[in-house]
């Protein structure tokens, strides 16, 4: 009995996923024009956030690399 449940579980999950996927696909296919336009307009926001995140990552990366080199040299000087 228990064995059959464990065997059935993946199947059930798969079935659920397929249904959910189909529902989502259907919904997005029948999505009103206005919603899709709104989705398109989100793209500039995504680009702005990416650009501002890049500044933090690149400048931060440089700062971290300097700090690491500083640490390495300080260790060398202590020796």
């Amino acid at each position: 009995m228990k064995k059959s449940i464990t065997r059935a579980l993946p199947l059930a999950v798969l079935a659920l996923a397929v249904t959910a996927g189909a529902v989502v696909a259907q919904e997005s296919a029948g999505m009103p024009q206005a919603t899709r336009l709104a989705e398109q307009n989100l793209r500039p926001y995504w680009h702005v956030f990416a650009a501002y995140a890049l500044v933090i990552l690149v400048v931060g990366g440089w700062a971290v690399s300097i700090a690491r080199r500083l640490k390495a040299i300080e260790e060398r000087l202590v020796d």
Binding site: R43, P44, V48, A51, L54
Partner: peptide, 17 residues
């Protein structure tokens, strides 16, 4: 080099839109 890399990555992000 660090800041030029920023220019070259943020520029295209803007240009695409």
């Amino acid at each position: 080099l660090v800041f030029a890399t920023l220019v070259l990555t943020t520029g295209p992000l803007w240009g695409k839109i």
